[in-house]
Structures are given as structure tokens and as C-alpha cells.
Design a protein around this nucleic acid. Structure first.
Lengths: 258, 258
DNA sequence: CGGTGCATTGAAGGCTATCAAGGTGGGTGG
DNA sequence: CCACCCACCTTGATAGCCTTCAATGCACCG
């Protein structure tokens, strides 16, 4: 195995081990799990310029750190909306239900990313969130969060950026689905995943995809067979090395040029 | 002509004229253009439960009411982000630039809807906004708006809903692009447009689309030829009456069933 | 060791893109 | 006022990408 398994695995598995990754593996999480001020993910999910007192306030926003089993739901479509969630470790998919029971994956989330914002409009979740592996999340009740955003300006700006980032992400997705062909979609998907792993201190060229071909296909608007074929094609063209869920990017520039 | 032209046309053009539509045509806009408290669109772009003093504050957020010619840009991709915009009359398209100069339409906006939120993340606009007809917008500098959101809770909640609505809208779009075939996409597009016109007091069954087939195609991830063919097919099947940009929905339930 | 879920690969067909040729309508200038 | 022009729309023929249906392989697990 040459790839990061989860934030809880040994750091030796990483080809590039950044500061963030090291802090991940220093064992911070278990004790004081709900103290943001001690969390390695702080840089990802908190505003940068908080003073001690403000950090204290942020700490108290986290009502709970919850563990979610693989396959379990954090929330389902149509559930009442009370909280947003920050993914501390593991990964999720968000899914919308089509009529006739068909479902579409609208996103994959990894550590440091936020879940549940879609519930604000109608007070109900529009998507469902399912863990792709055993994961832990910080539960942040939304009303207190809004209160904190009125009191602390950097906090407010941060929330707005998070929401705006989600808008931008979806815009990108719309462009992908609207203009790219299957091979380009898969390439873009891999590059995006790689970049996000890189940001978190993991290797940006070797990783394990926690999602199935079917979920990838659903996300990319193609069938699982087409997704599989594209992985095979990219491998044949020596752009990636793909063995099931283990991925190594061999030529990221060529991938981007597709 | 059996269809509303723009908010400034005579109300006799509407088959159903609601209260909002009537207020549109009462001539409120020209005088005191920047007074939200007097604006017919208030219900759409302001929180419901503001007291007089708070409304006063909201009024002062609008730095300017700007008129935009057909084809002109409100902002372009990569422009620095300073303000968000509420569309007072007319319509816009938002566009992202692909490499190689190709562009994709990511949304159409009509009166009461907000533009520019995509700029918050990076301080630069990711999309460009172009007027599809002569339009007027309220320019709302974002920093003062954030300030107001910290001071006035309903205001904050409203902004969050607007942003969340945008996230939900894009989620829907992702589902459309990921799972629907051309005919379904066009049907969904028409139903969505109809609903939004309906909300604004216009007829939900008869309207003029301000965008070209090419723009519709780009938005829906299909070619303009396919879009045109689908309009023809829907007409042949007696679900709509389409003559160029003039549209009448004949069987909305059948459209939804597609 | 068979069962199950997931991944891969092949063959055929359908949907949509592409290329191409009119058709239509609104605007402009003579 | 009318003819022309240009942008936009419609429609046809063909090609190609992707889906669908099907069979097989592979890893994990009770």
C-alpha cells in the first residue's frame, strides 16, 4: 500500500508529509476533541485572525464530535435543518434523490470541508450525506453559529467565504457537466481530488478514492461503465496508474490539457 | 403580443396580474429609486420582518441604481469583487469562460434575484454578468452589507438564505445536467422559468424568453440545434406553443412528467 | 468455498453533436 | 417605404460518443 488510508494512519504512508499532516498524526484529535483551538484542521475550517477570546467562543460552537459509520447518514434529504457539520476525518458523499428513486451524487467531501449548508433556505436538507468510510464530524448548531457571526467579523467573513466557495465549486461542476466529455470529466475529477488532498498535507499524486465507480459516474454524469473505461484509457495512455481505488497520477499536466 | 415584455410594460399584457405585478406598474421605480422601503420588489429581496428603523438602514445600503444596456456587462470574470447586485428590472445571464475562449452560461437572472455572490471567495468574480435586455440593478457594496448583517439578525438570515438558495439552485442544475436527456432539460428549464415569472406576478404560462437558443443550449449543456429540436418536439406533442422566443405552456403537468 | 459487491471489457444501439442548408424577422439605410 | 442585411432559428443527414445489456474477473468475508 502506497497511499494514505485515512487521517488516522501512519504518516509514513505519505510521499509528501506537510506540517498539517504531521499535526494530524500527532494524536491531537482524541483528547479535547471539541477544542477548535487545538485542532489540526483549524487552518482549514476557522478564520485565521482570531484572538484567544474569540477562539474560545468558537470552541463552544461545537456541540458535539460525532462518529459516523461507513454507509451511515449524517442527515437525509428532507430532514429538518439544525446544524452544519465540519468533516474532521474520513469522507462523505452528498446525494439528491431523483423521482423514481434514482439518486445523483452532488459532491464528495473530505476532512476540513463543510456539510449541510443546503438546508438553510427551507429549513430542510435538500441533499443527504452518507459516510464513505468511518468518519468523524464536528456538529455545529447553526443558530449559535449565526450569532457568533454577528459578534465576530472574521467569523462572519469566513462563513461567507465557505458558502461562496460552495457556490463556486458548483459552478465549476456545472461547467464540467455542460461542456466536457467523459475522459475530460474523469481527468478533472482526479485533478480536483488531488489538489484537495494536497491542501491537506497528503500526497497530491497518490491516494485512495473512497468512492465506487458507480458513485464517480453518478457524480460526473456518466455511467459506471464509461467511468471505468476512462480510467482504463487514462492508464493505457500513461497519464495515471489506476488499480481499483488506488490512484497514482503520472502526468498531471497532460491530464489538465485534456 | 400576449406576453409580458418587461416590468415597465402595461399590465394589460398579463393574463394573471397579481399584487406584485400591479405595484410594478404603478410607477414606483423612477422616483425614489433607491428607497427599498418603497420598492415593489421588497418582498423578494428584503427580509420580511424589519421595523422602520431597520428598513431605513437597508435603504442606505443601496449605493446606486444603475441602468445596463442590452449586451453590456455588469461585471466580468476576474473583475475585483466589491458589490452584489439585485436585479430590479430586466434580465441577465452569467457566464464562465472556458479555456480556448469557449464560454458556458451558468445562469439566467430575472427581477428580484441577486448577482455577484460568486466573488466573495477570492475577492474576484468568477463569472461575468451580461444584460439580456435593458435592465436596472441596485448596487449593494458588500462590506456595508456584511456590517448590516451583523447588526440586524433578520438581514443576516436573509443573506444566508439567498446564498443557500443559490447553492440549492446550482444543485438542481447539477442534477439536471447529470441525469436528464435533452427533452427533459428543456422542459425543466421552461417550468423553472415559468415558476419564477409566476412568483413575480407575471403569467406562469405565457412569457417571452430573453435568451437565444444558443444561450439556452449552453446553459443546458446541449447544442443550440438540439435545443431548437426539443422546442419543436414539445410543440409537436402539444405540450407547449413556441414561436421563437414567445412561449406558452400548454400542459405543465405533462412537462413535469417527462 | 461459495456468495456478494465492485470493476472491467465487449457488442449493439440510441441520443446528441456536427456539418450544412435554408428560413424568418427585426433593424437600418437608401 | 422597401429592400437588404444580419442574427437567429429551424430542419436534415451523418458521424461519433456514450448508454445499455451482458458476461467475466477479482477481492473480501461469513
Amino acid at each position: 500500500m502506497f497511499v494514505a488510508d485515512a487521517p488516522t494512519t501512519s504518516s509514513s504512508a505519505f510521499s509528501q508529509t506537510s506540517d498539517i499532516a504531521r499535526r494530524f498524526h500527532a494524536g491531537v484529535a482524541p483528547r479535547d476533541a471539541s477544542r477548535c483551538s487545538l485542532c489540526a484542521l483549524q487552518a482549514l475550517c476557522n478564520p485565521a485572525d482570531l484572538n484567544a477570546e474569540e477562539l474560545e467562543q468558537v470552541d463552544s460552537l461545537v456541540a458535539e464530535v460525532r462518529s459516523v459509520q461507513r454507509g451511515a447518514s449524517l442527515f437525509r434529504a428532507n430532514d429538518p435543518f439544525h446544524s452544519v457539520y465540519v468533516l474532521r476525518s474520513g469522507s462523505f458523499k452528498t446525494v439528491v434523490m431523483h423521482r423514481e428513486g434514482r439518486e445523483q451524487v452532488t459532491g464528495f467531501q473530505i476532512s476540513g470541508e463543510m456539510l449541510g449548508l443546503d438546508g438553510i433556505v427551507h429549513g430542510r436538507h435538500l441533499t443527504g450525506a452518507t459516510a464513505l468510510e468511518r468518519s468523524t464530524v464536528c456538529v455545529i448548531p447553526f443558530e449559535p453559529l449565526e450569532d457568533a457571526c454577528r459578534a465576530i467579523k472574521p467569523m462572519q467573513q469566513h462563513l461567507h467565504k465557505v458558502m461562496s466557495r460552495e457556490i463556486a465549486r458548483e459552478s465549476n461542476m456545472i461547467m464540467l457537466l455542460g461542456t466536457m466529455r467523459a475522459e475530460q470529466r474523469v481527468a478533472a475529477f482526479l485533478l480536483n481530488l488531488a489538489e484537495r488532498y494536497g491542501t491537506r498535507g497528503y500526497s497530491a499524486t497518490e491516494f485512495v478514492m473512497r468512492m465506487t465507480r458507480s458513485e464517480i459516474g453518478s457524480y460526473l454524469g456518466i455511467t459506471l461503465e464509461t467511468a471505468s473505461r476512462m480510467f482504463s484509457k487514462l492508464q493505457q495512455d500513461r497519464l495515471v496508474h489506476a488499480r481499483g481505488k488506488q490512484i497514482r497520477l503520472l502526468d498531471t499536466e497532460a491530464l489538465a490539457r485534456l
